[in-house]
Design a protein around this nucleic acid. Structure first.
Length: 408
DNA sequence: CGAGATTCATGTGAAGTATACCTTTAGGCTTAA
DNA sequence: AAGCCTAAAGGTATACTTCACATGAATCTCGTA
């Protein structure tokens, strides 16, 4: 056994890696030169430049679909500013928050608490009145005694979950501040989202607006080539691989992040299979794997009750793939599942909400339909590719420790 | 035959409850002068 | 007497429940052609 392992490790070490610097393919990586975004970067810089004279720059609102280089461009500009500020001893503080990444930050309270923490103030996860947290935040900001640029990435997520009041409050805080000034940079993936927010909030947030258009296939290709030069060893990538990645990403609304991830995973797969080149077929594998990992990650990190709701859906689907699935059916199975797993069942009301939340996560599709004389309900279907569905099924079976056949 | 009423199974909003966690405060205990 | 600790009191957020009302098309009802 351990001999096998030693063997494996030795083999692994002997094997030459295909990568030289894998980091270059990760989305956090900020390359020295950002291609095809010169104009946008320049604009951001122009808008934020007053900060270097310790004047408050305008708030910016940046739109653009995922993987169009928004975050990258902003971070790049902001890093540069930080450097200059440090060099010349300019009082400038820049804070970057990713609203989606921080799972914690899905309510107004948690968000402000998180922001205060980034100023080094300890805020308890619960218990304080919300305005008290605002107060802490306010003092933290005031203490800085400088221009503060607050970059809120994926701001649409925040507002969808926590309401737009938070932005309103943040923009208004300036009028109370004496020593500091706060500028907001909002980054949003959702182009439609601006229409759904309070016009007051919108106008205060988007004193300046910037749109990032999607990359087209040649541009993505360009980017991929550039990065792969850093990331991979020479001549490791076969002809056409990059083109395929680019084509794939361009099809998905020019998402460069996706393309980079695809290339990286393809490389990893090739490496694991002990091949010395990245081939086109690896891209296909990578595509499947990425999707699968994403779903599995979501499913695994869901609370118990969510899993307990998802499982019945899978069971129903499996038992009778053609039959439509309705809330009532799910609830019945859910209840017996709860008895088996020794969990107190929640009310149907809550299950209804949980189903909606699962819908939001993209694991299932729930559509409200009226069956006329036979009432009104949600019609649920699974949107997972079948191999993924199987994996999720076995995953939940073991996680919950229940035999599916006993539930029907 | 068709307009309007009825009906069903749940959606959905509002308000209430339980729980977990936080701060404040007051009283008691310890410690040092 | 000053300082520290602890437990109780008073608050809040969140997840969930309870209650009550809203929905919307298939089906039913009934007047009319």
């Amino acid at each position: 056994m351990s001999k096998n392992l030693t063997n494996l490790f030795e083999k692994f070490l002997e094997k030459q890696s295909l990568f030289t610097n894998k980091k270059a393919l990760q989305s956090i990586f900020i390359p020295d030169a950002i291609k095809h975004r010169d104009k946008q970067i320049e604009q951001i810089a122009e808008i934020l430049a007053p900060a270097l004279r310790e004047e408050k720059p305008s708030n910016i609102f940046i739109y653009g679909k995922t993987g169009t280089g928004k975050t990258l461009s902003v971070r790049h500009t902001v890093d540069e500013m930080k450097r200059i500020a440090e060099e010349k001893d300019i009082r400038l503080k820049i804070i970057y928050v990713n609203c989606k990444l921080k799972k914690i930050a899905d309510t107004e309270y948690r968000m402000i608490a998180e922001l205060s923490r980034s100023f080094g103030k300890a805020v308890p996860p619960t218990g304080l009145p919300t305005d008290e947290v605002y107060n802490i935040f306010y003092h933290a900001v005031e203490e800085q005694n400088s221009i503060i640029i607050l970059v809120l990435d994926e701001i649409d997520q925040l507002i969808n979950r926590a309401g737009d009041e938070i932005i309103y409050n943040l923009t208004r805080i300036n009028s109370d501040l004496k020593k500091s000034q706060l500028s907001l940079v909002g980054i949003s993936n959702d182009l439609m989202f601006a229409n759904n927010i309070d016009p007051r909030v919108k106008s205060s947030l988007s004193e300046e607006e910037l749109v990032f258009p999607p990359y087209n296939a040649p541009q993505i290709r360009d980017i991929l080539e550039e990065r792969s030069k850093i990331a991979f060893k020479e001549d490791v990538i076969e002809e056409g691989v990059i083109a395929k990645c680019a084509a794939y990403a361009a099809r998905e609304h020019g998402d460069a992040r996706r393309a980079l991830e695809l290339l990286r995973v393809a490389g990893e797969i090739a490496e694991r299979n002990a091949e010395d080149h990245v081939q086109i077929k690896h891209i296909d594998f990578a595509e499947d794997k990425i999707e699968k990992d994403r779903i599995i990650d979501i499913v695994q990190t869901q609370p118990k009750q969510f899993q307990n709701v998802l499982f019945p859906i899978l069971v129903l689907k499996r038992n009778n793939p053609k039959e439509k699935i309705y809330t009532g059916d799910i609830y019945e199975i859910y209840k017996s599942l709860c008895i088996k797993t020794n969990i107190r069942p929640l009310t149907q009301r809550r299950i209804s909400d949980i189903i909606s939340e699962l819908d939001m996560l993209g694991i299932i599709n729930a559509k409200i339909i009226s069956k006329g004389r036979f009432g009104r309900t949600k019609e649920i279907s699974l949107s997972l590719p079948s191999p993924v569905e199987k994996t999720v099924f076995t995953l939940l079976t073991t996680e919950l420790g229940v035999d599916a056949t006993q539930l029907l």
